[in-house]
Design a protein around this nucleic acid. Structure first.
Length: 471
RNA sequence: GGCCCCAUCAUCUAAUGGUUAGGAUUCCAGAUUUUCAUUCUGGCCAUAGGGGUUCGAAUCCCCUUGGGGUCACCA
């Protein structure tokens, strides 16, 4: 694969979730984009857990994220970086900024801050820190642990170069104040550590959600203060729910692992996600290799997209239909269908995989075929059973009993045809009641296929069971 | 509300300033299927509105409208 950036700089991207919960579908798409771009360029993709806020730190969530990555098959380079383990590094840079006079201690209490903001709001001004400790040299107030604020520019503009949006110019007066880079307990804040880590880890292409866009000027202030080289940014438009709002945990199936439970294939999910905000002509089906070869963040759309599960279902069905039966059988185990060693596995899966949208439903269908019906759907019964059904099924039973050379669906089909011809009836006359006997309902794969899969004895058993209810 | 971003079928999207505005999903109809599903064929459906620029605008500019994001000692 040739990369456009070629020989000079290795592309390094990252995914940096905060471990506040499971990995959701929007995060996965962003991660996929980052991963694809790194792999496209033979670069590196690193995973960093943003857990600087101990009060919200959650180890289980970090594990859940890793588990989701493993399921979909996105690998990362090097060890996972936990920001909670890098506090000394951040402290060092904060000290540096303090020494250089680029940051300062602010002794304003939360109450004072609140009051300030309230007053500003009342005056219809933008709530912002007023810089009262920026040049403070007096004796610090008693009993207050200071926060540390960075000296942000007070006038002029900051320009963000975004690979998707283009150049966006912010007016400093509209958006900035001396924001906090370290809390009163000494821990650093998000906008500071993101910039420090991205720089230190050599991240040169930041692909992240659009909700981070307005943080970018702040991070640029940190880059500037520390003299770090800035990366290229790509802010990926949000994924919206049907209401047009940012996809949130309230929207149901947003947990990536829920898709596994529902029976979706990772390849289908990734294919679905890569097409949200990105396309390559009219192509809809992309293997992972094709995605890697074709993806480029510069081609990402500017507008948000709405999450719609219909297309995912279609893709999932597509990947199921095209999967080898052995692989399918392996997947099916997790959904409660065990076909290990079943001699008619091929016939069964060939017949069923055409009709399944999910692995879960496929597993259910498998078990439905493999086990005798427990009951007969009343409506199906009424529709399938006519006055002559009993004699037709009886004749079929008789002919089955005489045969011991039945293996393939076509063998059973032959027997059915014999009955149809002998009795001079239409095919439906035997098909419908037979289907009811075998499945307990009127949908499913061909009855000849069902019989071939379960064998003569089981077929006879099921037919006799229905016949027994006809007296 | 301030700032920022966005705007093509219901949905995902395509279209060097020149196409009957294309494809996909959904939906509808027909064919195939003893059923259901699959598959195949066909059909419905879009450039938010208004001004410009231009021989020519979905495409460039402006305004309006609509939608979204963000404004913490969260990330």
């Amino acid at each position: 694969m040739h990369s456009k950036k070629g020989s000079h700089t290795m592309v390094v991207t990252r995914f940096a979730p905060s471990p506040t919960g499971y990995l959701h579908i929007g995060g996965l798409r962003t991660a996929l984009f980052s991963w694809l771009w790194a792999r496209h360029n033979n670069g590196k993709f690193v995973l960093r857990i943003e857990d600087t806020d101990q009060s919200r730190n959650n180890e289980a969530a970090a594990r859940a994220i890793v588990e989701a990555f493993e399921w979909v098959g996105l690998d990362h380079d090097g060890e996972i970086v936990y920001q909670s383990q890098r506090m000394e590094i951040y402290k060092m840079y904060i000290e540096q900024l303090l020494d250089e006079g680029k940051a300062y201690k602010c002794y304003m209490s939360k109450e004072e801050l609140d009051a300030l903001r309230e007053a500003q709001s009342a005056r219809k001004e933008r709530p912002r820190y007023d810089g009262r400790y920026r040049d403070f040299t007096g004796a610090p107030p008693e009993g207050i642990d200071p926060v540390i604020r960075i000296k942000a520019p007070t006038e002029g503009t900051i320009t963000v170069f975004d690979g998707i949006k283009g150049e966006v110019v912010f007016n400093v007066a509209d958006i900035l104040d001396d924001f906090i880079i370290a809390r009163s307990d000494g821990t650093p804040t998000y906008n500071f550590v993101v910039a420090v880590d991205d720089a230190l880890m050599g991240i040169n292409e930041v692909i992240r959600g659009d909700d981070h866009f307005s943080n970018t000027p702040k991070q640029l202030v940190v880059y500037e203060a520390l003299g770090f080289k800035t990366p290229v940014f790509y802010h990926v438009p949000m994924i919206h729910n049907a209401d047009g709002k940012k996809l949130s945990k309230r929207d149901g199936a947003t947990d990536v692992m829920a898709y596994k439970e529902m029976g979706y294939l990772p390849e289908a999910l990734l294919n679905f996600l890569v097409r949200l905000g990105w396309s390559h002509g009219d192509q809809e089906i992309f293997s992972l290799e094709e995605m890697k070869a074709l993806f480029n963040p510069a081609d990402i759309n500017k507008s948000a997209s709405v999450y719609n599960i219909d297309k995912l279902d279609w893709l999932n069905a597509h990947y199921i239909k095209n999967m080898h039966n052995d692989d399918l059988a392996e997947h099916l185990k997790a959904y409660g269908a065990d076909l290990e060693g079943h001699d008619k596995k091929e016939i069964l899966l060939d017949a069923l995989k055409e009709r399944a949208k999910t692995l879960k439903s496929l597993a259910e269908m498998v078990n439905e075929v493999l086990s005798d019906p427990l009951e007969y759907d009343p409506k199906a019964r009424k529709k399938a059973l006519k006055a002559d059904s009993k004699s037709i099924l009886g004749a079929f039973v008789q002919m089955l009993e005489e045969r011991d050379d039945l293996h393939l669906p076509s063998d059973y089909h032959g027997v059915m045809e014999e009955v149809v011809e002998a009795m001079e009836i239409g095919f439906g006359k035997i098909g419908m009641p037979l289907r009811l006997a075998l499945m307990g309902k009127l949908s499913g794969p061909g009855v000849d296929t069902i019989m071939a899969v379960i064998g003569k004895d089981a077929a006879l058993r099921r037919i006799r069971k229905l016949l027994a209810t006809l007296d």
